[in-house]
C-alpha cells in the first residue's frame, strides 16, 4: 500500500533546471516541468521555440547541458521504453517499401527482440491497435499510398503497440486536415483515460479544446498545470509569440475555459 503510493508520487516526466541546445546555441533555458499520471498537457510555442529540442531531451536523444531529466523516475534512456512517441508527419519517402502492418509492428521492437521473431502476441497487439484505429483493412497498404490523416493513425497505432504509459506527440496537427485533427483529438481524449499524454504544437487553436492543461514554450517554459493562458503567462519570461495574441487566439482559449466553468458550476 505504502509502496503503491510512493509509485504514484513519482512523476511520469520530470525536468529540473534543464538547459539544452546545440553547439553554442542554447535553445532551452532553465526548464522545470513535471508531468503527472493522467495528465493531458498541451505545450504551445512558436517554431524555433525549442519544441523539438524538448522532445529530444525527454526521449534521451540529446543530453541536457545542465539539469536533470527523469522518465518514470529513471534516466530517459531507460524510461523511454514506456513512451509511445508519435513524430510529426514529414515528407515521407513515398516509395519506401513498408506496409502499414510492417510499420505498426515496429512498435513491438526492442533490445530484447533482437534475433527473435515476432510472436503471436506481437501480431495480436498490432491487429488490435489497427482495428481500434479503423486501419485494419489497410494493413497491406504501402505507407506511401496513404493520406496524411491515415499515416498519422498508423503512427498512433505504432505508438500504442509499444503499450506505453505516456504518449508524446510532436506537432500532431501539422499536415493533417481539420476533420482528421478533430478526430485525432477525440481519439486522444479517449486514450487519456488510461495513458498520460503530452503534446507539443504551435497550433493552439485545436489543442486548447481537448487538453486538460496548457503551457507555453518559447525557450523558457511557463506551465502552471492549468487550462488557462493569461496575458500574464504570455508576458512571463519570453512568453508566447505576439502573433498568437494578435490573432486573438488566447481569447478563444479563455472563452472555452469559461464555458467549462459554467458547466462545472
Amino acid at each position: 500500500m505504502m509502496s503503491e503510493e510512493t509509485v504514484k508520487q513519482i512523476p511520469v516526466i520530470a525536468l529540473r533546471g534543464v538547459w539544452a541546445g546545440y553547439g553554442n546555441n542554447l535553445i532551452l533555458e532553465d526548464i522545470n516541468f513535471t508531468v503527472r499520471e493522467g495528465d493531458f498537457i498541451g505545450l504551445i510555442g512558436p517554431n524555433g521555440g525549442g519544441k523539438t529540442t524538448l522532445i529530444r531531451v525527454i526521449l534521451g536523444l540529446i543530453e541536457p547541458r545542465r539539469g536533470e531529466v527523469r522518465v518514470l523516475g529513471k534516466t530517459p534512456q531507460v524510461g523511454r521504453r514506456h513512451i509511445g512517441y508519435i513524430p510529426q508527419l514529414q515528407d515521407t519517402d513515398y516509395d519506401f517499401p513498408a506496409s502499414v502492418w510492417d510499420v505498426v509492428r515496429m512498435g513491438r521492437l526492442g533490445k530484447e527482440t533482437l534475433l527473435k521473431r515476432f510472436t503471436a502476441r506481437d501480431n495480436a497487439i498490432v491487429e488490435e491497435k489497427l482495428r481500434w484505429l479503423g486501419m485494419l483493412d489497410l494493413k497491406k497498404q504501402a505507407m506511401g499510398e496513404l493520406s496524411g490523416g491515415q499515416r498519422q493513425r498508423v503512427y498512433i497505432a505504432r505508438a500504442l503497440a509499444t503499450e506505453p504509459k505516456i504518449l508524446l506527440l510532436d506537432e500532431p496537427t501539422a499536415s493533417v486536415d481539420v476533420e482528421a485533427s478533430t478526430n485525432l483529438y477525440e481519439l486522444l481524449a479517449s486514450l487519456n483515460e488510461h495513458v498520460t499524454i503530452l503534446l507539443i504544437s504551435h497550433d493552439m487553436n485545436v489543442v486548447s479544446k481537448y487538453v486538460k492543461t496548457i503551457g507555453c514554450l518559447n525557450r523558457r517554459l511557463v506551465y502552471h498545470a492549468e487550462k488557462r493562458i493569461t496575458p500574464e503567462m504570455l508576458a512571463e519570461g519570453y512568453g508566447c509569440p505576439v502573433d498568437l495574441i494578435a490573432h486573438g487566439v488566447p481569447h478563444r482559449v479563455l472563452a472555452g475555459h469559461d464555458q467549462d466553468e459554467v458547466k462545472h458550476d
Binding site: L61, R80, R81, P87, F96, M106, K111, L114
Partner: peptide, 13 residues
Amino acid sequence: SFDEIFARVRNLP
C-alpha cells in the same frame, strides 16, 4: 531504415 529516431526510442542498438 524507415524511422531511425523511433528505433532509437525503442532502444534498438
